[in-house]
Design a protein around this nucleic acid. Structure first.
Lengths: 207, 207
DNA sequence: ACCGTTATTGACAACCCAGTACAGAACCAT
DNA sequence: ATGGTTCTGTACTGGGTTGTCAATAACGGT
């Protein structure tokens, strides 16, 4: 009974996310978002409540995508848990894809965890952003910890190791590759870091 | 023969660095820097060439401080290299101090690697910042790698491990703690992560 | 005590930005 | 076809930002 919106909200949020990723929050103006998405000022305010609203909704979408990745890749039977962990680690250091059907990132600079980047920039003065970033960390951390436990049950990881400690460490490494990898390091180097980390996981001492 | 400047450049750059750390580059105005340092606009432009100049010089100072830390803590005889690595790791995850006589940081949020934070925010469009950040990474990485080699010579680390790979991994972990630790995680948690990482270092298999 | 040189201060002008308001367009149900 | 409702684009405004300029103050050599 009324005029339908002529854009796809997800597409708009993806474009905005890309913009925020490359220019930062304070570095992108509403006009930048407008240009990147094709929407006019008015539509942006009506649909997303302005710049800050766009950011929050873009981060929420990112969170949803982020949650699916680890859960799908890491969940499963105890058997093969270590392999899943390996595969996830290699994948994670190369960034979270914008969408399921989109390759992870054009350049690694823009692939760094969106939530972490926004949190580092404005999280100190923006509790909502801070909370969203923490949620992103938590979902990865719990999924990894669960997978570590599965691998322990299967005898692939030293049962004496604390799965939560390991999960924290792995999360730290993944976030670290965002920073290290964002500038001047090749994907090969990131892969190498991930492999090194995986190789150091505590294996059970067999007999 | 002319009026001397009435401020200490280092003190000004430290204050500016603190401001940049808490508010980000685009989040701090020249007036903010002016208020934080006590200098007027004109003096800032005359002495540091404006906001961007202040950032570059503050980062250069940070780089100098950063370089001293690892080198002093990590360099030394082969004997005890592993202990030095351990001590450095524990120290690094709690941030780089503003000055030699100043405690590392009031809150961990502002302690995250200054260079990494600036590089993540504006490095994509600021080659000079990007280069400075890479320099910061390099100095830590090479110092760590050298210490790993020393520990290997002393038989404390598996001689088959690639010291450069390990150094990259450790650098990644340190940078990761900046991100993870910046929001919502206690210093104890960071210490725990550092200890976990240290415990996983590949020891030589003794007979 | 004076004067050249340099720092400091405060104000100013041009510009950019976020958010709002209003006018027009598109759609659908009737 | 028409009308009500919602979307879309643009123009406007108040506030904040940057970089500069001229006037003033402070110092040291002479």
């Amino acid at each position: 009974m009324a005029r339908p919106r002529s854009f796809d909200p997800d597409h708009v949020l993806h474009a905005a996310e890309r913009q925020f990723r490359t220019s930062g929050y304070n570095g992108t103006s509403v006009d930048d978002i407008s240009a990147a998405t094709g929407l006019g000022r008015g539509s942006l305010y009506a649909a997303f409540d302005g710049k800050h609203g766009v950011l929050l909704q873009a981060m929420a979408g990112y969170f949803a995508r982020l949650g699916q990745g680890p859960r799908k890749l890491l969940a499963g039977p105890d058997e093969g848990a270590l392999d899943r962990l390996h595969a996830y680690l290699l994948r994670a250091v190369h960034g979270v894809p914008l969408a399921a059907d989109v390759p992870p990132a054009p350049d690694r600079t823009a692939a760094a965890c969106f939530a972490a980047k926004m949190a580092l920039e404005i999280g100190a003065s923006d509790p909502e952003v801070k909370r969203l970033a923490n949620d992103c960390f938590s979902v990865v951390r719990t999924a990894v910890a669960e997978c570590v436990r599965a691998a322990q049950r299967n005898g692939d990881i030293d049962p004496d190791a604390d799965p939560d400690d390991l999960a924290y460490l792995l999360l730290t490494i993944i976030r670290g590759t965002d920073v290290v990898g964002a500038y001047g390091h090749s994907p090969d180097r990131l892969t190498s870091i991930a492999e090194s980390a995986f190789a150091l996981l505590p294996r059970p001492r067999h007999h």
